[in-house]
């Protein structure tokens, strides 16, 4: 069993497993690290190359506490393998005070924010818009989408998974209605469904904070007890962007049409 596997058994699927893994971790972790390091030496000797380990999917540590335990309380364990290791890391954790304490222990931290489709001033980012267009153009013939529809889908989502999901939903609707092309109403109906769902899921506190984020372009929790911004970033209803002019946060573009409604009820 690899170190990553043991760590990624991640505190288990059920109480019994969790307890078992914890015990196993306690008793075997040193042994595992040692064996891993021997393995690294052996691989490097044989290949005459440096080993790079990429530990992906740590974004699956979705519960804040679980992620903090992993990266902030046990981070020394993550540094023990004698090779280059890249750990994927949930962006919302960068917004906790622990981040600055732990960061120096690692060689580097690289943040990959969402590709903004608009700049902080609201102007469209053509290069990024083209990236999203290309994602669809490689999968759907451009002639199968009504003019302007793709742009609306991109600007209204601004996140890859949401954009793909909306286009998929719209294409199923067009297919079901025996249309020759994906029409504006197919995309609008998919966007509206998603918007309605998020609107229902957000609490009043979330909406209030989203309004603040929209105004200030920053997402900060007020203290250790406040996890509202982090929750919004986890759920990607608030999004962090970066372009040549800097880094900022904003409301998920899908929810922008709701901002005015929230303001009125605030």
């Amino acid at each position: 069993m690899s170190l990553a596997k043991v760590i990624l058994l991640k505190l288990g699927r059920e109480a019994k497993t969790r307890e078992y893994v914890r015990k196993e971790l306690d008793t075997q972790i040193s042994d595992l690290i040692q064996r891993l390091n021997w393995l690294i030496i052996e691989v490097e000797d044989w290949t005459k190359k440096c080993v790079v380990v990429i530990v992906d999917d740590l974004d699956k540590l979705t519960r804040g506490q679980q992620a903090e335990d992993f990266f902030y309380k046990n981070y020394e364990l993550l540094l023990q393998p004698n090779c280059f290791v890249i750990y994927t890391f949930p962006i919302p954790l960068t917004f906790t005070p622990y981040y600055q304490n732990v960061k120096p222990a690692f060689d580097d931290d690289v943040i990959l924010p969402q590709l903004p489709v608009r700049g902080i001033d609201g102007g469209e980012n053509d290069a990024n818009l083209n990236f999203y267009r290309e994602v669809v153009n490689r999968r759907i013939e451009p002639g199968l989408i009504d003019a302007g529809v793709l742009n609306e889908a991109i600007l209204s989502t601004g996140k890859l998974h949401e954009f793909v999901s909306v286009m998929k939903d719209a294409s199923i609707k067009a297919y079901r209605n025996e249309r020759e092309k994906i029409a504006k109403e197919d995309v609008e109906s998919a966007l509206e469904k998603l918007r309605r769902t998020y609107d229902r899921t957000l609490t009043e506190a979330h909406k209030k904070r989203l309004l603040e984020i929209h105004e200030s372009k920053e997402a900060r929790d007020t203290g250790n007890d406040d996890a509202t911004s982090r929750e919004l970033l986890f759920s990607l209803t608030a999004v962090e962007y970066e372009d040549e002019n800097g880094r900022w946060c904003d409301v998920d573009p899908l929810l922008l049409p709701l901002v005015e409604k929230w303001k009125r009820s605030d």
């Binding site: 979705t62 769902t197 899921t201 986890f234 759920s235 990607l236």
Partner: peptide, 9 residues
């Protein structure tokens, strides 16, 4: 959506 967001996405 809140507690299993990766599954949702």
């Amino acid at each position: 959506i809140r507690r299993a967001p990766d599954f949702w996405r």
